[in-house]
Design a protein around this nucleic acid. Structure first.
Lengths: 345, 345
DNA sequence: GTGAAAGCGCTAACAG
DNA sequence: CTGTTAGCGCTTTCAC
């Protein structure tokens, strides 16, 4: 039903080799022949099979992308930017959303290998290291973003999580907060870095780091909400929370509200990622911005360099985060202090 | 570098035909041979090339999905559900985000044809009908969701937009609102249906349909905000707005707030879609829920039926929307009336 | 039960 | 400048 190179060749009265050359724009072809062939291709609405060319050329011009959850705005945004960059470079992308299931991870990796992708990007929360090792062994380039697997020497591009955690915490401290807790995503390396940044900032500002103020949960609105409620109803509630991502921060906001705290007057919260959500929720979230676009584009570029063998050594790129102050943070007890002052007078 | 069927055959001491049979689990194969071959495949970490099998079998077990914008939560969610369903059925998905660019639309359609996808799903806002006609002509099944192209007889599954528009408006009317405006997305059929529903509800409730109360804009937060501000600062401002989707509704909320109106006390707004956003914004949005999961899964099922030639005629499935009442709508002037009453006493 | 061989649509030498 | 031909890795008759 769909025309092949033979149909084009026959109708144009040339050999398939000639057609192939005009498709790929290489070899020497007479101007007229080229024009004629192009016209016929157009007429027939011919689309060269990438299956066939991939088979012979041993290159599919396709990369695989594994992400934990496409419905999560952070991953949707980063995936969109990878896709955009890939297409600029003439590559297509197979997007796989693992939903944090190990079974799916394995299925998808296998799928990508069967598809003979030229390379693969793994974004965060990928658990089965042996699967990656298998790809490497077979010579499939792999790049990582928003995570790191120290035992493997891989290309990575990520935001500087440590610094982000530091900035968030320092911001809260500079507003006069002393009781600052952090709620982070469970079991991911980037979280640990953010927590380290949090701790160092606390120490540096001369604030006490309490174990009970560091909690790890599932990265959902609900997780953030429940954790915040637990903290805020404890005997020594914090006045501010650094949440490990925007989703958690929104959960924290909801939890604070459930505890009758008004943000930012009674309580401050800062998020991480600066997704669409941060601008939409109320109050708009003070958050640590990841350069999402840049990460997505750059990881593709790095992978492509690796595929093309242009890399002498693995790249490990770390991009700077940036504090974006919106309305979920405020000077500690600004109101209350002034009231107090008034009363004391 | 990656092992082929020949490597497996050689190492197992059988022919490639035999290996092929065990891969596809067909033909008669001795139990021992099968076991042996499977073991070798495992050992070699062999992944059959879908390029090669696709070439011979004329089936790639891949479907293409075209969406306007992956970073938009509605499309991210629907895409995620399509992907999930497809993988349950053993299909893989190539996701293409057109960003509403006609050039990209064309590029992606061409890509999908070169990839020899078994079928294609187009989600909303696809503009170039001739491109679809080309696919149809070449026998590539196409299914549509969240849109309709009346000139083409295609499989579709969508929410009942008319009914949704009606429900939203009727809800507002039942709360006592009389001056109800609507802000819809420009140039898409689903919008027109929602507006029709709006108008019919207005008429049925005996409310005046003003031309100035029906406005169409770009589907962005900003678009919604600006349109709302224009309406609310007009000489005859509405007391409620039905927004064509959640993003617009959030823009409307922001616009109302900029006009010093408190939601829902001074002003009500209802959205459409019931994405994650509706639960996260403040106040949580009363909205018309689309059965996003179901739409995504069902459109895949319909496409697959078509691919398998199991359809005698085209399906046109319309799923019911559902009003979800949250906190962005309230009885008109409940407060003010009571204040007034108090004063009058 | 198993294998030999043709062919899927294309690319890449190589000849002419 | 253009054509011939040998694969790429796999499926699928058809023999044995």
């Amino acid at each position: 039903m769909q025309p092949t190179i033979y149909d084009v060749a026959k109708k144009a009265g040339v050999s398939i080799a000639t057609v192939s050359k005009v498709i790929n724009n290489n070899g020497r072809i007479g101007k007229d022949t080229r024009k004629k062939v192009l016209k016929i291709m157009e007429e027939l609405n011919y689309h060269p099979s990438v299956l066939a060319s991939g088979l012979t050329r041993k290159r599919t011009e396709t990369i695989g992308v594994l992400i934990p959850d496409l419905a999560n705005p952070f991953f949707a945004e980063i995936t969109a930017s990878m896709e955009e960059r890939a297409h600029e470079l003439g590559l297509s992308v197979v997007i796989c959303s693992t939903n944090d299931s190990e079974e799916k991870e394995a299925k998808y990796i296998s799928l990508l290998m069967r598809k003979k992708v030229d390379g693969c990007i793994l974004a965060s929360r990928f658990t089965q290291v042996s699967l990656i090792e298998n790809m490497i062994k077979q010579g499939i380039p792999v790049a990582l973003t928003s995570q790191d697997i120290p035992s493997l020497n891989l290309n990575t591009v990520s935001v500087d999580d440590y610094k982000g955690g530091y900035q968030a915490t320092a911001h809260l401290a500079s507003l006069g907060h002393k009781k600052i807790a952090t709620i982070a995503e469970k079991n991911v390396r980037s979280s640990h870095e953010r927590i380290k940044g949090y701790m160092d900032a606390m120490i540096e500002k001369g604030l006490a780091v309490e174990d009970t103020y560091i909690v790890e949960v599932e990265p959902t609105v609900k997780g953030g909400k429940e954790a915040a409620e637990r903290l805020l109803t404890s005997e020594d509630p914090p006045t501010a929370i650094f949440a490990g991502n925007d989703i958690l921060a929104i959960g924290v906001s909801q939890g604070a509200r459930a505890c009758q705290l008004e943000i930012p007057n009674d309580f401050s919260v800062v998020g991480f990622d600066n997704t669409l959500l941060a601008t939409i929720c109320d109050p708009p979230l003070t958050t640590i911005a990841q350069p999402i676009q840049q990460i997505g584009r750059q990881i593709v570029d790095v992978l492509v360099s690796e595929i093309n063998g242009e890399l002498d050594y693995k790249q490990r790129i770390m991009l700077p985060p940036e504090l974006v102050v919106r309305e979920s943070t405020k000077k500690l007890f600004e109101n209350k202090v002034s009231i107090k002052t008034t009363i004391e007078k």
